[in-house]
Design a protein around this nucleic acid. Sequence first.
DNA 1: GTGAAAGCGCTAACAG
DNA 2: CTGTTAGCGCTTTCAC
Lengths: 338, 338
Amino acid sequence: MVKRVTIVDVARRAGVSTTAVSKVLREAYGTSPQMRSRVRAAIDELGYRPSAAARALRGRTYTIGVMLPDVRNPFFADVLDGAADHLAGSEYQLFMASSCDDEESEARVADAMIDRSMDGVILIAPISARSRLEHVARTVPTVVIGRHGNSGAYDTVADDDFGGAGLVVTHLVGLGHRAIAHIEHAETDPVRLAEMPNAVRADGYRHAMRTHGLPEDVVSTSYTREGGYLGTRALLARQRPPTAIFAGADVVALGVLDALAEAGLSAPGDFSVAGYDNIAFASFGPISLTTVDQDGHRIGATAARLLLDRIADPARPTTQVRLSPKLVVRHSTAGAAE
Amino acid sequence: MVKRVTIVDVARRAGVSTTAVSKVLREAYGTSPQMRSRVRAAIDELGYRPSAAARALRGRTYTIGVMLPDVRNPFFADVLDGAADHLAGSEYQLFMASSCDDEESEARVADAMIDRSMDGVILIAPISARSRLEHVARTVPTVVIGRHGNSGAYDTVADDDFGGAGLVVTHLVGLGHRAIAHIEHAETDPVRLAEMPNAVRADGYRHAMRTHGLPEDVVSTSYTREGGYLGTRALLARQRPPTAIFAGADVVALGVLDALAEAGLSAPGDFSVAGYDNIAFASFGPISLTTVDQDGHRIGATAARLLLDRIADPARPTTQVRLSPKLVVRHSTAGAAE
DNA sequence: GTGAAAGCGCTAACAG
DNA sequence: CTGTTAGCGCTTTCAC
């Protein structure tokens, strides 16, 4: 293995001290123009890049960690893109790690980021207890995406899931549907019931249904394709199935369509189906899913911005950003059969 | 921000030297049972975790970097799962970073991993020049996934893309098709033509067509949904379109189906369509795509195994693992119309 | 404006 | 078996 070029090599080549090189590197105060150019020249000639690992011990690592719950959910790709775009051109590098939908693995991932002295972390839709998130946030600048509770320890960026669910219900009611079922991600923990996007969407659904004077009809499974499949099977087994199904996430809606196809049914002919997230596949011709776009790109970019601000000033008061979603009407929803 | 517990705190608490703590941590030679238990107790009481950042300067970081070209391609999720599963239980933590389909961003990502003293890197389907890959491999233990050339500097894990393409052609020929088009990812660089999976698949297609005495019919676009869409539009515009379309990747096949749907056509009624990768959506009811499964999970697990072996012994000779793909027949392919 | 020196948390020689 | 000591590559006082 090749030996790395270090700051000492650069200093020797430029005929200056390592301190000087360090200052030029960080554009710190106290360097003359001619020293800067000599150091820069030496850096280029030698192909020097500072060791982030060594920097970690004293200063920054220029590393930001993103914890995401599920590599497969394409919605998170949009969030990542947004964060990456915001960070492009800066010295920061994004690294992601996925957790496995349980608190222990979330803790392991967050600890791993802390142990590696990352300068900041973005946690996407974490399920961990509030106290745990605050513990992380007290150790490293933290932005939480998706959770609705506000904390004095971390900034948050979330979609208005309550309003977004309302958009879907209103759309379906406008099409003449009255029996509208909602497939949600089962949740029992009281804090998560108040803070997790899935729970807030379910609340928004319930509220909207009540507002329209319609009966609530919630099926609890999980935010996966299988959850949608199982939920739909349960609905189809009823004597009087609903006429419309609002899946809490697009991946769930895919499972709904799976189950319908298996039963020889389709959307919107037999059932209207709507999702949430506007993942790339939602626009896929044969699916053409009506859904809610929560602009993952903007969410990611906002999270990156808040994080850089907090890294710059860890003491600044926390912010909660809530972005407004918009309904994307496609072909999976249509007027209710008489 | 809270101050971290360090090895000094643990040593003081346990009444031993930091060397002793370090040895216990690494299960190194030269510690008595009673010392081990005292140190372990102190670690637990204090909630100590070693700083990977500090370790980086002397020993390992227990960090493995995975560079992937596209977060959106669900096939890579399988590879990641495989690698993560193999690493579960070990001290290693996986971090991923995505590049942007150009050599410069690949270099930036690989350098970022090197700068952070990662113990090893897994590069998924990199497009960089061979010399660049070997440069990386001389700096850090490296496993390359997807590339076919073999190198003395890095291990490789690849699917038998040549054979896999043959499976598809043989399947379609067996169904009675004779006009079979292939949509590939355009490639001009000579090394990539020999090493990249897309190019090898195209070769396998050509070879299989020749073997069956059929005319080659290749459309060059890109391995994206849009590439499939555009390629299909071109095919449909012909006087005599083919009867079957073999897309070089499942995402491409989705674009094919997009274009067909737009033209009021469908698979397998009007055209047989096959893909490659067996991404999760390929099994989605309304799509039900015939495709080739290259077992991403096993590819990822194998890569992780090779990487750990190389980290343990950087001098060992390199290995090239080639995994056999298998055809998954679903409903998007059917007998050719007479 | 510049550089010598100390030290971040850990590991690895080397004595004892 | 155990502890002392010297760094790893960088940043940061603090003299000059």
